[in-house]
Simulated assay, not measured.
Amino acid sequence: MKLEQIETPAALIDVARMQKNIARMQARMNTLGVAFRPHVKTTKSIDIVRAQLAAGARGITVSTLKEAEAFFAAGISDILYAVSIVPSKLPRALALRRQGCDLKLVVDNPTAAAAIAAFGDQHGASFEVWIEIDTDGHRSGIQPEQQTLLDVGRILHDNGVKVGGVMTHAGSSYELNTPEALAALAEQERAGCVRAAERLREAGIACPAVSVGSTPTALAARHLEGVTEVRAGVYVMFDLVMHNVGVCTLDDIALSVLTTVIGHQEDKGWAILDAGWMALSRDRGTSRQSHDFGYGQPCLLNGTLLPGYVVSGANQEHGILAAIATDANTASLANTIAQRFPIGMKLRILPNHACATGAQFPAYHAIAPDRGSVEWQRFYGW
């Protein structure tokens, strides 16, 4: 199917851009001398993950057990489930391990650690558990110097549960936008996770893996001494938030939403699109950054950017394309909106957050340089 024939709205992947992004990240990890374990929650697509593995990635990171089950069924066995496990999900985790999946669990509290130990003892099963470390106060995890770190480690170790390593995610990197700030946070992330591993080892608890990562810190790190692997996900597509952070250009963004102009409100300077927040997602991450892209940056069908325009609003199935109010040519742009964007014209919208926008679709249309496409399925659910 050619690009022009795809029904809208649809999620498009520029394959050439995607491959460039994959190669860039893998080359960076090779230079830093660490293994790379991509986070597949961004795409949830076996076709894309196979491209990452072919480039040199080792294992994957998932955010749901559904992802773990689907990717294991597709032949990938080295999987880190990077969300703190709860007791109710242990039977599914055990089922995966008994089928041969090298599934690694994550905890950040004594209650979950004790539940894993008790469940394993009850079922005669063994688990590998990594301890989540909080290195930036952004989300969950145990701070490197907290006593809780050793408490969790001892609960696992003393009950015969393998402590496979420590892991952390510097999510606050999304709030930064200078190379200096990103490099500083990358070092904070590295040093904190390495320190946590050292404390466990000093207490007699083996801790072979030290896993860090976010797309911005992975690309900004100057060295990764003591780290064994890096995780990152959104880099494979990039998005407008990452553009504002400063780790990609608009021309690096590989994901877009194909949409059609379905109407106009000429007195308001609007073109109405058939891609609302059900297609673009409600994520407005750029609203807190230096450049607000509304609900997305419009482009022509061939990917050429349309400066001076933005998707300024979105209802469930309607998007509003408008001239940027601060643009010097706003009046003329608004007056010619119907001529510039006639009904039936197709556009592409670059997303604020690739993970959230991709999640709105059951499949991607992978676009080759000749504008031909193939369909890549993606996984849903938890």
Rank of each mutant, 00 (worst) to 15 (best):
S84G: 14
V234S: 14
P369R: 11
G319S: 06
L3T: 01
E317T: 14
T326F: 10
E266F: 05
R28G: 06
V247F: 05
T326I: 11
I116Y: 00
G120R: 01
N21I: 07
V83E: 08
P87V: 04
L219K: 02
V106K: 00
Q52H: 12
A11R: 01
E375V: 15
Y380W: 10
P144K: 03
L300M: 13
G319M: 03
N244Q: 13
T260S: 12
G124R: 09
R222E: 14
I6Q: 04
W130P: 00
E67V: 02
P38Y: 11
A35K: 07
H138A: 14
R348M: 06
K44F: 01
V241C: 08
H169P: 03
T260I: 07
I13D: 01
Q122V: 06
E375N: 12
G124W: 05
L96E: 00
A70T: 06
Y235N: 04
S45H: 04
T357W: 03
G246L: 08
I349Y: 00
P369L: 10
D252L: 02
I116T: 00
G137W: 13
V83M: 11
V230S: 03
A218W: 01
G33T: 09
T8R: 06
R17I: 02
I79T: 04
H264Q: 08
A232G: 10
Y81R: 04
G160I: 04
I76W: 03
V129T: 07
T286F: 01
R24D: 09
V374L: 10
E187V: 05
L149R: 04
G226D: 08
N335A: 15
T330V: 15
S77F: 07
L12P: 00
V163C: 03
R58T: 15
E266C: 12
G56H: 03
M278H: 13
L90S: 00
F71Q: 03
M25H: 03
V86P: 02
E4Q: 15
L255Y: 02
P342C: 08
A366K: 01
A118C: 06
I76H: 03
D251E: 15
D47I: 04
V236M: 11
A334N: 09
G141W: 01
L94K: 07
G75W: 12
P307W: 11
S211H: 15
A338K: 08
N352D: 10
P38R: 06
A275W: 01
L350E: 02
A73D: 14
R371D: 14
V163D: 00
A331N: 14
H39G: 07
D121Y: 03
E7A: 15
D239H: 06
L250K: 11
Y295H: 13
S173H: 05
D121V: 09
K89G: 01
G59V: 09
A197E: 04
N21S: 13
V212H: 02
V247Q: 03
V310N: 02
F72D: 01
Y364L: 11
H123M: 11
F379S: 09
L255K: 03
V227P: 04
Q52T: 05
A118D: 11
I343Y: 05
V374S: 10
T8Y: 07
G100V: 09
G124F: 07
G233W: 00
R98Y: 09
N244L: 07
